[in-house]
């Protein structure tokens, strides 16, 4: 059990990154991006592509994958989603729903439905702490990457003009526009950040679990759970949400078997939606 808890915590750091982009878009654009899971898994596939072509470690491919995914998210928001904002809640939501479907099928077309993994040199290494507790290096690296992403994002939002502008927009977009902030551009940047953080999470998860084109929707629900648990737009909340979901998954899989590993997470999420949909960390 201690092993499951440890792995759950380490996995939680990554789950937090899965959710953080979703949380940002939720908080800033007030939109649930149903294609978030596909961006996540797209990151894994891109990494696979570049790692194979350039013969480098999946983590190194982030140097290419992250900017690429940023541009994709920025362009998507600017060209498509910004156009339908203000037409009510449903059109933007359904656009992301359609996008998720398209991306899934594009991935299927290019990469087939075969399960894939990203191979690393450290995937089987472990640090033995005691007889009953070993730390898989893979999980540790993942956790560190996750923590770094969250730290960098937090610093960015706090200390750069662009980051502050994004926070202002999330607080009150009309007032933000009076400050000379371009609201739509802030939305696009936020989407760029969301897609690139999702891709980082995808790469990291891809080194740990097998994935295929449909994996995205499973992680969309993880992302959503993290957001609902942590409250939208809250970084500490996202971390806690990630930890809860990481633990729910490893413990669930230990106690109920792998078929039910997501069950506890879903139940928590559903309960949260019923009792406190604004999340634990929102006022």
């Amino acid at each position: 059990m201690a092993q499951a808890v440890l792995q759950g915590i380490l996995l939680g750091g990554v789950f937090a990154v899965v959710g953080i982009g979703m949380s940002m878009i939720f908080g800033i654009v007030k939109l649930a991006n149903l294609a978030h899971g596909e961006f996540f898994i797209l990151g894994a596939y891109l990494s696979m592509l570049f790692a194979g072509q350039l013969d480098i470690s999946p983590l190194l491919t982030l140097v290419i994958v992250v900017p690429l995914m940023f541009v994709a998210g920025y362009a998507l928001q600017g060209a498509l989603i910004n156009r339908v904002l203000g037409m009510g809640d449903e059109p933007p939501l359904l656009i992301t729903f359609g996008l998720s479907f398209i991306l899934q099928n594009v991935l299927l077309l290019i990469f087939s439905a075969d399960p894939q993994t990203l191979k690393t040199t450290y995937q089987l290494k472990t640090i033995v702490v005691s007889d009953s507790l070993i730390v898989p290096v893979l999980y540790l690296v993942n956790f560190i990457v996750g923590a770094l992403v969250i730290l960098i994002l937090g610093l960015f939002l706090r200390f750069t003009y662009t980051g502050q502008a994004i926070r202002a927009v999330s607080d009150d977009n009309m007032a933000a526009s009076l400050m000379g902030i371009s609201v739509k551009r802030s939305y696009s940047i936020a989407m760029g950040i969301a897609t690139s953080t999702a891709a980082v999470a995808g790469v990291v998860i891809g080194t740990t679990f097998t994935f295929y084109p449909y994996t995205g929707s499973e992680y969309l629900l993880v992302a959503f759970g993290v957001v609902v648990l942590g409250g939208m737009g809250s970084i500490p909340g996202t971390l806690v949400g990630g930890l809860v979901f990481g633990l729910a998954r490893t413990i669930g899989s230990q106690v109920f078997g792998t078929n039910y590993q997501m069950m506890i997470g879903y139940i928590i999420l559903l309960a949260m939606l019923m009792i406190r949909p604004q999340g634990l960390f929102s006022k």
């Binding site: 502008a165 926070r167 607080d171 933000a176 009076l178």
Partner: peptide, 15 residues
């Protein structure tokens, strides 16, 4: 229409 989740000084600096 203050930015309610920001401090007073951050509000001013946003200006």
């Amino acid at each position: 229409r203050c930015f309610t989740r920001m401090t007073v000084e951050h509000n001013l600096l946003m200006g």
